[in-house]
């Protein structure tokens, strides 16, 4: 019976630590955030500052977001596979920690699965997957930023953003592409990445990426991102209305294999006032019907 005594002691200890453990308070968000536009002082922006702003415009728009996402994976022969999901995002701080919640509607073999990420720019993310068939939540390894997201041409890093300081950035030129005035910035990876060099066309007005070209170790172009549709999503009412420019259609094409992935965001909503608690085990197991229906 000695083992039993040890166990009771250990359990008691764990139970006590439950009571004493405190959640770190989340940093206050600046109220009434507005989309950033071109540097108002007129001073030229550094390449790194452009990329930082671009990340904020693309990954951190507003304080939180909900969108229906349709992802089409098209192979070189035109064969198509479709993923339908609902994504929610909450920014804890601008350019800092974020939480993502992705609920899968289609295809059938992943229906009701939920993928949750707590993203930290400074360290490895926390990731969990809810497997509804056996009612199980399991943590999954997060060291695979280069791995494909659900079989698409987008990597995990493409979905939630790459640490700006992981690349060194150079402003190559300013030019017009697809009707947008853009900065052209080259980013060379300092740490392990799926690419060695990335060239981004970033719109001067909205700081959204219009086009990105990814080059492999042989300096060959292998992936191209294009923003195919930009919409202004309105937040607030009356005099407080703000429009958030949002890429609602985007494509990532693999030049070498001919495979491409087209993503369409529907019914994008910002500032729903999502809470920290919404990105929890409870919500993974039982998402509120207003999120998923």
């Amino acid at each position: 019976m000695r083992t039993k005594t040890y166990f009771v002691a250990i359990l008691g200890f764990v139970l006590c630590s439950f009571a004493f453990a405190q959640e770190a308070p989340s940093p206050d968000k600046p109220p009434g955030k507005e989309p950033e536009t071109q540097s108002s002082s007129g001073a030229p922006l550094s390449a790194k500052a452009i990329i930082e702003r671009s990340q904020r415009a693309f990954y951190y728009a507003a304080d939180d977001m909900k969108a229906s996402i349709k992802m089409e994976l098209v192979d070189k022969d035109g064969g198509t596979r479709t993923r339908v999901m609902t994504m929610l995002r909450l920014d804890e701080s601008e350019g800092g920690n974020q939480k993502y919640f992705i609920y899968f509607h289609e295809p059938g073999d992943v229906r009701r699965m939920v993928f949750m990420v707590w993203k930290y720019p400074e360290k490895e993310d926390d990731r969990w997957l809810f497997i509804p068939a056996v009612d199980l939540i399991r943590r999954i390894a997060a060291d695979d930023k280069r791995s494909s997201f659900v079989g698409s041409d987008f990597t995990y890093e493409d979905v939630s953003g790459r640490d700006v300081s992981a690349d060194s950035h150079t402003l190559l030129r300013e030019e017009k592409t697809a009707g947008h005035d853009c900065f052209v910035v080259q980013s060379t990876s300092k740490t392990a990445a799926e690419y060695t060099k990335r060239v981004s066309w970033i719109e001067k007005k909205t700081f959204l990426p219009i086009r990105e070209e990814y080059f492999d170790a042989q300096e060959q172009l292998f992936r191209v991102f294009t923003a195919d549709r930009i919409e202004s999503i309105t937040v607030g009412e009356g005099g407080n209305k703000t429009g958030w420019p949002t890429v609602t259609k985007r494509t990532m094409k693999n030049i070498k294999t001919g495979h491409r992935t087209e993503v369409v965001l529907n019914s994008v909503t910002y500032n729903l006032e999502l809470k920290d608690d919404d990105f929890s085990e409870r919500r993974m197991r039982r998402p509120p019907s207003s999120w998923i229906r």
């Binding site: 250990i10 359990l11 490895e124 943590r139 999954i140 060291d143």
Partner: peptide
């Protein structure tokens, strides 16, 4: 009676679980 712990560590996920099975009909 048991416990488990799981965390991201060492570039992956580390798990620990323990339990005491009390066979009440054969103490």
């Amino acid at each position: 009676y048991g416990m488990s712990a799981q965390e991201s560590a060492l570039g992956g996920v580390l798990s620990f679980e323990a339990g005491y099975y009390d066979s009440r009909d054969d103490e």
